[in-house]
């Protein structure tokens, strides 16, 4: 795209309109392929409106009877707990890998590369896949969900933290190095104090994301309210499903407000 605005240099005299047309053509072709590849069909959606209406009709009003509501709230707490433990227990691993995987703190190039690779791997494997793996090890239930979040979140948070550490002013690090502090002391006394606000902000952001992820983990059998949503769909109890979704809404909005409020405080 930028070739269009650049002053014509020694390299070929392609006119901007030709380059633009080529880009537009490629984009159009890609979208047509994607349309076909996903079976995208508004006609089907219109034809199937009755099914959706039936679904909505059964879901409304939600079943707000105490047994359903109580079970939903208990399960929502489990979801919250999965998100909490998954976030907290990933902190030490994320911290170590972030320190080893940041250019400003890595002891040498090999360790840096190894830490970066491990973080990339943990990030690349989705938490749902980790959950399916751990379900085979520890069985269905919230514990598998916690393990899955620990692994995936270590990858994401480690990466975010290491980037935060690469952006700080390196003066205090150099100053402590000159007075004989070793690598761990430099991290503890010059690097970490400078990044605490960013670290806490990112941690809360990840907690927020992890609570929402743990819902999806419930769908694959890792307990919590996601599991109840899945179950009520399978039993065609859409009114119960609606109740669970309302509880999810309250949970997600609550966590979001909480983490936003704390982040505002810490950012000062």
């Amino acid at each position: 795209m930028t070739t269009g605005t650049r002053v014509p240099a020694a390299s070929g005299r392609r006119s901007p309109s030709a380059a633009g047309a080529a880009v537009v053509t490629v984009l159009v072709v890609l979208h047509v392929l994607a349309w076909q590849g996903t079976g995208f069909s508004p006609a089907d959606l219109v034809r199937g409106w009755r099914g959706m209406a039936d679904f909505a009709g059964e879901a409304i009003p939600p079943d707000l009877s105490w047994p359903v509501l109580g079970a939903g709230i208990r399960a929502a707490l489990v979801t919250l707990y999965i998100g909490l433990l998954g976030t907290t227990f990933s902190v030490p691993f994320a911290l170590v890998l972030a320190v080893l995987g940041a250019r400003t703190t890595a002891p040498n190039r090999w360790v840096y590369q190894a830490a970066r690779s491990l973080l990339s791997f943990l990030r690349a494997v989705p938490d749902v896949v980790f959950a399916l793996i751990f379900v085979t090890a520890v069985g269905l239930g919230p514990f598998a969900g916690v393990l899955a979040l620990i692994f995936h979140n270590t990858g994401v948070m480690g990466k975010l933290w290491s980037e935060a550490m690469e952006e700080i002013d390196l003066g205090p690090r150099d100053a402590l190095r000159t007075n004989g502090a070793n690598g761990v002391q430099v991290v503890a006394h010059a690097i970490l104090p400078a990044v605490v606000p960013q670290f806490v902000g990112l941690l809360l952001y990840r907690f927020d994301v992890n609570v929402r992820s743990s819902l999806v983990l419930g769908l694959v059998g890792a307990g919590g309210i996601g599991f109840l949503v899945n179950q009520s769909i399978k039993l065609f109890r859409f009114d119960q499903m609606a109740t669970h979704l309302l509880i999810v809404l309250v949970l997600v909005v609550g966590v979001d407000l909480l983490s936003a409020a704390v982040r505002r405080r810490v950012a000062v």
Binding site: G171, P172, A175, L176, T178, N179, H189, A190
Partner: peptide, 25 residues
């Protein structure tokens, strides 16, 4: 010991903690 133009203290720590950091070695 080195003193820098840009001072290079840890801004978010206390004064006494920064002085103590001189002894880390």
């Amino acid at each position: 010991a080195m003193i820098f133009q840009k001072i290079h203290l840890v801004q978010r720590r206390g004064v006494l903690d920064n002085v103590c950091a001189g002894a880390l070695g």
